[in-house]
Lab assay of single mutants.
Amino acid sequence: SAVVMEEGSPGEVPVLVEPPGLEDVEAALGMDRRTDAYSRSSSVSSQEEKSLHAEELVGRGIPIERVVSSEGGRPSVDLSFQPSQPLSKSSSSPELQTLQDILGDPGDKADVGRLSPEVKARSQSGTLDGESAAWSASGEDSRGQPEGPLPSSSPRSPSGLRPRGYTISDSAPSRRGKRVERDALKSRATASNAEKVPGINPSFVFLQLYHSPFFGDESNKPILLPNESQSFERSVQLLDQIPSYDTHKIAVLYVGEGQSNSELAILSNEHGSYRYTEFLTGLGRLIELKDCQPDKVYLGGLDVCGEDGQFTYCWHDDIMQAVFHIATLMPTKDVDKHRCDKKRHLGNDFVSIVYNDSGEDFKLGTIKGQFNFVHVIVTPLDYECNLVSLQCRKDMEGLVDTSVAKIVSDRNLPFVARQMALHANMASQVHHSRSNPTDIYPSKWIARLRHIKRLRQRICEEAAYSNPSLPLVHPPSHSKAPAQTPAEPTPGYEVGQRKRLISSVEDFTEFV
């Protein structure tokens, strides 16, 4: 048969007729292969192709491409040299491709048809291009793949890379869960390890502090508590009631339409708007009261037996805890006409967050109470924005700035309102402590230090009264110190430094 060459192609190359033996071998191979691939376009007849790359030819070592076609129900084999250009295909004639002069020997084609199974398996396991790669995943090629499931790999992101949580363990979102698992493993320790309690022994800490320079003076030496005195035992138990972190309780009120001037209507609300609910979820963490331990979680007086509701929101960081007394989460009882059960919590909070959804101005004093010092007013606006402002009593104007209003988005509203309420509550605590000038409020841990110092002074006084020969370590507060001759004046800087060093040991009130 003659071949018409394309323009620009090399000279004529004689194409030899395939021997009958080659056709029989390739026909047997075509019957084993699956003929249901995917359909081509209507211009080209339905056909199945599979590209198999052999590394070497037997005796020649030339890479070839073998295409199996099922045109007219008769499979045909096409061998081509890759750099050459194939002729145009037609549905009426068999596929013809040019070969190099080196394939002119018909014996070479017979060798190609009689490829060993080793070469076929190696060509099938190679990388296939384009559409033949999808075909190689079918059941027909499963014989050339190794048996057994593939090893499982770690989760992959859409980009093909490992997620960040699997790369950096410290930033993994499941870090707290692993800590819980470690605690569970520790709890399952053997009885021999049960006595080993991690941490620092208080006796060891005391020993280090006792021999430090801070205890060089007799006034700073630790003293032993009497065991037989019940009054001192009660004082030590009272110390446990003062937490070592700051605590805040903040009221949250929802004002519906037409309720801006009605205290009873505001306290009777059992739910609010959708934006109000989203605002609550951002204030803190939802907790169930019956599962809380009052000595570990500050509840601000809420009952854990269901008297004040089942849930509330709280927030904490390293040095403070805040609980929100939310009116809509507290039960509304029919027998309580004046809502006294709610007001006994909300009316005693220094700061209230008022979500004013009424469309009218909310005035300070609508919720009557002796300790309502500051109101954080949240007014929802259009386009997911809110107006946040402050209202306070006249005696609080020096501590709280009420002249600045803020426009905040719904997303950042819980954070801004919480921070403003916490700052206002700190100012309210300082303002409330002014009624007792001898006990200015600095912080909870300073209050613990003052309680310890008062307890020490009482013990020293009782020891001096029981044994008059012992001198008083600290003179009583009601006694007057003996007159001392004025010492020589020293520079102001040295006096300030000495006073600062003494105050650092005794108390921190002056620095606050």
Results as ranks from 00 to 15, higher is better:
Asp217Val: 13
Ser219His: 12
Asn220Val: 15
Leu224Ile: 10
Pro226Arg: 09
Asn227Met: 12
Gln230Ser: 07
Glu233Tyr: 08
Glu233Phe: 08
Arg234Asn: 14
Ser235Val: 13
Ser235Arg: 09
Val236His: 08
Val236Ser: 07
Leu238Ser: 10
Gln241Arg: 13
Pro243Lys: 06
Pro243Arg: 06
Asp246Val: 06
Thr247Phe: 12
Thr247Arg: 10
Ile250Tyr: 01
Val252Lys: 00
Leu253Gly: 01
Tyr254Trp: 00
Gln259Thr: 02
Asn261Thr: 10
Ser262Ile: 03
Ser262Pro: 03
Ile266His: 03
Ile266Asp: 03
Ile266Gln: 03
Ile266Pro: 03
Leu267Gly: 04
Ser268Lys: 09
His271Gln: 10
Gly272Ala: 03
Tyr274Glu: 06
Tyr274Met: 10
Tyr274Ala: 11
Thr277Tyr: 12
Thr277Asp: 08
Phe279Gly: 00
Gly282Tyr: 02
Gly282Asp: 02
Leu283Ile: 04
Arg285Gly: 12
Leu286Ile: 07
Ile287Tyr: 09
Ile287Gly: 14
Lys290Gln: 10
Pro294Arg: 11
Pro294Gly: 12
Asp295Thr: 11
Asp295Cys: 05
Lys296Phe: 05
Lys296Val: 06
Lys296Trp: 12
Val297Asn: 15
Leu299Tyr: 15
Gly300His: 14
Gly301Met: 06
Asp303Met: 03
Gly309Ala: 14
Gln310Met: 15
Cys314Tyr: 15
Cys314Thr: 14
Trp315Val: 03
Ile319Phe: 13
Ala322Asn: 03
Ala322Leu: 13
Val323Gln: 14
Thr328Gln: 02
Thr328Gly: 02
Pro331Phe: 03
Lys333Ile: 10
Asp334Gly: 11
Val335Arg: 11
Val335Ile: 11
Asp336Val: 06
Lys337Gln: 15
Lys337Ser: 13
Lys342Val: 07
Lys342Arg: 06
Lys342Gln: 06
Lys343Gly: 06
Leu346Phe: 07
Leu346Ser: 05
Leu346Gly: 05
Gly347Leu: 15
Asn348Phe: 08
Asp349Cys: 08
Ser352Asp: 02
Tyr355His: 00
Ser358Ala: 05
Gly359Ser: 05
Glu360Pro: 02
Glu360Tyr: 05
Leu364Cys: 15
Gly365Val: 03
Thr366Glu: 04
Lys368Leu: 08
Gly369Leu: 08
Gln370Leu: 14
Gln370Lys: 15
Phe371Tyr: 12
Val376Pro: 00
Tyr383Gly: 07
Leu387Ser: 05
Leu390Gly: 02
Leu390Ser: 03
Cys392Lys: 02
Lys394Gln: 11
Gly398Gln: 11
Asp401Met: 04
Val404Asp: 10
Ile407Glu: 05
Ser409Tyr: 01
Asp410Trp: 00
Arg411Asn: 08
Asn412Val: 05
Leu413Ala: 14
Phe415Lys: 03
Ala417Met: 02
Gln419Leu: 12
Ala421Phe: 00
Leu422Glu: 02
Leu422Phe: 08
Asn425Tyr: 03
Asn425His: 07
Asn425Asp: 11
Asn425Arg: 01
Ser428Tyr: 05
His432Phe: 15
Ser433Leu: 07
Asn436Lys: 08
Asn436Val: 10
Pro437Leu: 06
Thr438Met: 06
Ser443Gly: 09
Ser443Met: 15
Trp445His: 13
Ala447Cys: 11
Arg448Met: 09
His451Cys: 14
Arg454Val: 13
Leu455Val: 07
Arg456Gly: 14
Gln457His: 12
Gln457Arg: 08
Ile459Asp: 05
Ile459Cys: 08
Glu461Pro: 13
Glu462Met: 06
Glu462Trp: 08
Ala463Arg: 07
Leu470Lys: 15
Leu470Ser: 15
Leu472Pro: 15
Val473Ala: 14
Pro476Trp: 10
Pro476Thr: 15
Ser479Ile: 08
Ser479Cys: 08
Ala481Asn: 10
Pro482Lys: 08
Thr485Phe: 10
Pro489Ser: 12
Thr490Gly: 11
Pro491His: 11
Pro491Leu: 11
Gly492Val: 08
Gly492Gln: 14
Glu494Phe: 07
Gly496Ala: 10
Arg500Cys: 13
Arg500Glu: 15
Ile502Cys: 13
Ser504Lys: 12
Phe508His: 14
Glu510Trp: 05
